[in-house]
Design a binder for these strands. Sequence first.
DNA 1: TGAACAGATGTAAAAATGTTCAAATGAAAG
DNA 2: CTTTCATTTGAACATTTTTACATCTGTTCA
Lengths: 123, 123
Amino acid sequence: MATNRPEISEKENDYLAAHEDVVKRVIERQPADEYLYDLAELFKVFGDSTRIRILYALFESELCVGDLASLLALSPSAVSHQLKILKDAKLVRFRRDGKIIFYALDDDHVRTILSMGMEHVEE
Amino acid sequence: MATNRPEISEKENDYLAAHEDVVKRVIERQPADEYLYDLAELFKVFGDSTRIRILYALFESELCVGDLASLLALSPSAVSHQLKILKDAKLVRFRRDGKIIFYALDDDHVRTILSMGMEHVEE
DNA sequence: TGAACAGATGTAAAAATGTTCAAATGAAAG
DNA sequence: CTTTCATTTGAACATTTTTACATCTGTTCA
């Protein structure tokens, strides 16, 4: 039982949908592209094992760059680079104490997202 | 007030921690590297706007490759490649109906993770 | 002020990733 | 059994991303 195939609309509809009606309805309900893009950017930040390890370490305690470098067996420079990415994504915050800068998880969102992900992985 | 600096242990502790005691405690509580790695792999899958768009589309309805291609203005091949990644990560499942294969979100975990992420982005 | 140190940044090389195109599957209908 | 059509696969190419190394900034403390 073939689906109706109305003439192709003028839109940049490069590929034909087998079920145009459904497709149209779905399109209408999609969040703005901007949000989807930002969302992907956010998850991209979580998508690196070094950064995940940093986040999990900060899960336990605030730490300075040197501590993280030691803990992860990475150069302070490498850690700093990753921390910048985490900072830009608002996943960590920091405070200065004299010469040392302590990093910590920014909010509980981060904890929740990590936990949800871990649940999926543990299945 | 400088922290104690016991002689460097024989471990592959390439960089000195300013706060060895804290570092040790944190290390003990870290999940196995394998989990952290898998977790990063999972988030890596979410970290692409095409895949996010696919997931959000499937949020509304099950869809076949052609529908997704039309909806996203991508080639069926590109869509199929991404669906494979999503399948491998167990984020989507599929069923065959005659010649057509329908894809759907695999479980509510996916919905939850997306929602959590979106909350963070919307702030 | 300047030496010492923690951390940040620029950039180039190396590695991983996404999209495209062409060709291969594999189920279904004749 | 052959054709058709939806989907998958593989290789190539372009783009991003990660990492390493060197250099720079900024703070503390003598």
